[in-house]
C-alpha cells in the first residue's frame, strides 16, 4: 500500500515528497497546493535552477534550504510568476502558472524582507493598497483584525519607512496575510530579526496555518525555524534538490543532532559519505 501511494506521488525521477509529514495519506491531485516538474532556470550559460521537481500537499509547510546561490529565491520567483522558467511546469492550486497565473495569484501571497513597501505611505495606507489589489472584502475590518493580531496598532498611521526592522517585518506579514492566502511563499521571513521578534513571527505563522489550512513554502537560512515549522525539507545546492525529507528523517539519515549540521554536511559535500556510514 505504501509503495503504491509513493509510486503515484513520484514526480519525474525523484523520490516522493508529496506526503504530509511522516503520515501517509491517500493521494489525490486536489490535495496538492503546489506541483513543480522539471523546473529549470538558465541565465545564459549559468544554470540557476536545474530541473527540480517537488509537490507540496495542502496545509503543510515545506522548507527550501540551501546556501547563497542555491536557487531558493529563483524558485520562489518562478512560483510567483514574476520570473519565467526556461523549462518545466508549475501548478499552484490546480492552475498552470505559465498560462493561468491570474487565477492562482489572488489566492496566494508573498513576503520577503528584501522587497520594500512604499516608505512614504502609512502602514494602514499600504495595507489598503494591497487590500484593493487582492480585492479583499470588508477591507477596513480586515485591517483592524490584522492590526490586533500582529500588534500594529501603535504604528498603524506611521510611514512604513520610519519603522524598525521588527515593525517592518510585522507589516510585511500583515500584507502577506491581507487576502487570507491559501498558499503563502516566504523568502527568509525572519532574516535579521532578534530572537523575540523571530519567535513572534513563527508563532503567528503557525497559528495562521493551523487555523486556515494554508500551505506554506518557506525559504530560510534559519535551521531552528525550519525544524519548527516544516514537515518536509528540500535541500538545494547549485540549483538542484540534493536531498529531501522530514527534518526527523534528515537528522537520522545523516546521524546529526540538528539541521545546521546536515546543512553543513551537504554544503561541504560530506553528505553521501555520511549517509553511507549511517546506513
Amino acid at each position: 500500500m505504501l509503495s503504491e501511494v509513493a509510486a503515484r506521488c513520484q514526480i519525474s525521477n525523484l523520490s516522493p515528497v508529496s506526503i504530509g509529514g511522516d503520515r501517509f495519506t491517500p493521494y489525490s491531485p486536489g490535495m496538492e497546493a503546489i506541483r513543480v516538474e522539471a523546473l529549470t532556470k538558465r541565465y545564459g550559460e549559468m544554470l540557476a535552477v536545474d530541473a527540480i521537481s517537488f509537490a507540496v500537499p495542502r496545509g503543510t509547510t515545506v522548507g527550501l534550504l540551501g546556501g547563497n546561490g542555491a536557487g531558493k529565491t529563483t524558485t520562489i520567483a518562478m512560483l510567483l510568476g514574476i520570473l519565467i522558467p526556461s523549462s518545466g511546469s508549475i501548478r499552484i492550486l490546480g492552475h498552470d502558472m505559465a498560462t493561468d497565473r491570474f487565477s492562482a495569484l489572488p489566492r496566494m501571497n508573498f513576503s520577503s524582507p528584501y522587497i520594500a513597501l512604499p516608505a512614504k505611505l502609512s502602514v494602514a495606507e499600504n495595507l489598503r493598497v494591497y487590500g484593493h489589489l487582492y480585492d479583499v472584502s470588508r477591507l477596513e475590518a480586515r485591517i483592524r483584525e490584522l492590526s490586533d493580531e500582529l500588534g500594529l496598532a501603535a504604528f498603524i498611521d506611521r510611514p512604513a519607512g520610519q519603522l524598525s526592522a521588527g515593525q517592518k517585518t510585522r507589516v510585511a506579514l500583515a500584507k502577506a496575510l491581507i487576502n487570507r492566502p491559501e498558499v503563502l511563499l516566504l523568502d527568509e521571513p525572519t532574516a535579521s530579526l532578534d530572537p523575540d521578534t523571530g519567535d513572534f513571527m513563527r508563532t503567528r505563522l503557525e497559528q495562521y496555518r493551523d487555523e486556515t489550512g494554508c500551505t506554506i513554502l518557506l525559504a530560510s537560512h534559519n535551521m531552528a525555524e525550519v525544524e519548527r515549522l516544516c514537515s518536509q525539507v528540500l535541500m538545494l545546492k547549485l540549483g538542484r534538490v540534493v536531498d529531501r525529507g522530514s527534518p526527523h528523517d534528515l537528522l537520522s539519515r545523516y546521524g546529526r543532532e540538528d539541521l545546521e549540521e546536515v546543512f553543513l554536511d551537504i554544503a561541504r559535500d560530506r553528505g553521501a559519505a555520511l549517509r553511507e556510514t549511517v546506513a
Partner: peptide, 18 residues
Amino acid sequence: LEELWSRNLGHVFVSPLR
C-alpha cells in the same frame, strides 16, 4: 518610477494586478 524608487515592483507584480 515611484514604484521603482520605492522598490515595490516585486510586490506589485506578484499581486493579481495585470
